[in-house]
Each structure stands twice: as C-alpha cells, then as structure tokens.
Simulated scan of single mutants.
Amino acid sequence: MDTVFIIINIAIMLIFIGILFAMQKKYVSFSKRVFAGLGLGILLGAFLQIVYSADSEVVSATTDWYNIVGRGYVRFLMMIVIPLVMVSIIQSIINLEKSSELGKMSAWIIGILVTTAMVAAMVGIASASIFNLNADQIEMGQAEEERGLALEERLGSLEGMTTPQKILEFIPSNIFLDMTGERATSVIAVVIFSIIIGIAVLG
C-alpha cells in the first residue's frame, strides 16, 4: 500500500514539473517560473506534511525520489560554477580593447570575491550569536560526524597559518584540484589562474 502512495506523490511532482515546462514553452519569464516553482514546492511540502505523519516511511521514501530532482539540480549547478567562472573571465580578458583595463578588472573580481566571502562569514557569525545557534540538540549520524571532523581539521590548518601563508593559499599549485572545489580558496585560485591565462592570450 505504501508503494501506491509513493507513486502518487511522485506523479504529483511530475505534474508540477510539467507545469513548469509548459510555462517555459509559453515563454514565461525565468523569474516568474522560479517563483512558480517555489510556490509549487511549498504546496507539495505542505501536502506531504498534512497527509502523512512526520516519521512516515512514505514521506522518507518519497523524499529520496524527490532528491533526484532537487539535489540533482544543485549538483548540476555546482558542476558548472567553476568552469563557468574560468571561461567567462578568460573570455572577458580576451575581449578587452585596452590593456590598462586589465588590472582594474582583475582587482575588482578578486576584491568582490573576497568581500562577498567576508560578508557571508559575518552574516553567519552574527546569526549564530543573535539566535544562540548551536549543534547540541542535532542528532549526528556518521555523515555529520565525518563532515564535522573534516571542518575541524580544515579550521585547525587555517588557524595555524600566518597572514602571508593565508595569502599564499590563494595562489593555485594544482588547478585541477582547485576545479574540484577541494580547498577553501579554490574559487579565488581559479580566478587567479583564469586571469593569468587571459593575460597570456593577450600577450
């Protein structure tokens, strides 16, 4: 019987996706489709919460199927971010008409990346302080414990660095490693590499 309910839930999701495809066929603007998808997602989530109990096996199994679309979409975005950053920066530098604009543009790109990272960190710290957020009541599984250990290891390695060493971390030594996003400064390293490639092409 649970299988029938799971199939029904999946069918509802496919209908909602079909609505979004139909909106695209009618050339509805991207922003309207995004908000429509957000609204349909909220309705679908509310439906699952109202019809089934929170610890229902149907909800758990349904969520696994929904993750193919949700997490799959996020993984596709993560897949193209770094290559897109690299290609767009190299293309922009190649299209420069005046070499004097290169230094200004490079400084702007790196400055914006560093500034947004600082803003994100400050917002996170402020939110945790204001709302007294902590992880004491979170039930940790194996995946959470492994992630926590990895973050603590990374934090320890950064805390032991001097300021010049932290700046040195921005410079890529293995661009293929940075393209995987393995390091905390991978995106900035890719930007620096892209700028160097662009300068080489101009030269």
Rank of each mutant, 00 (worst) to 15 (best):
I167F: 14
P164L: 01
F131Y: 13
E145N: 12
L149W: 03
G124E: 09
G160C: 07
R154E: 00
E139Q: 14
V114K: 02
L113A: 10
L149N: 08
P164N: 00
A117E: 14
Q137I: 05
M122T: 05
I175R: 06
E146L: 12
I171G: 01
A117K: 12
M122K: 05
L158V: 02
A143M: 10
G141E: 11
M118F: 13
A117H: 11
E159I: 04
T163C: 10
Q137N: 15
E159T: 12
N134T: 09
L149Y: 11
S157Y: 03
Q165G: 03
G160K: 14
D178E: 15
E146G: 00
L158E: 06
Q165V: 02
D136I: 06
L155I: 06
I110Y: 05
T115A: 14
P164A: 01
S173I: 09
I125F: 12
G160M: 12
L168A: 14
E139W: 08
M118T: 03
A121E: 03
L133M: 13
I130A: 06
M161S: 00
S129K: 14
M122F: 11
L177H: 13
F170D: 01
G148I: 07
P172K: 13
S173H: 11
E152Q: 15
E146K: 13
A121K: 03
L151I: 13
D136N: 11
T162C: 07
A121F: 11
I175G: 04
A135F: 12
R154Q: 09
S129P: 03
N132A: 07
F176K: 09
P172F: 13
L158P: 04
E146I: 10
Q137H: 11
L168D: 10
R147M: 15
S129I: 03
A117R: 09
D178I: 01
N174I: 02
A126C: 07
G141F: 06
N134K: 08
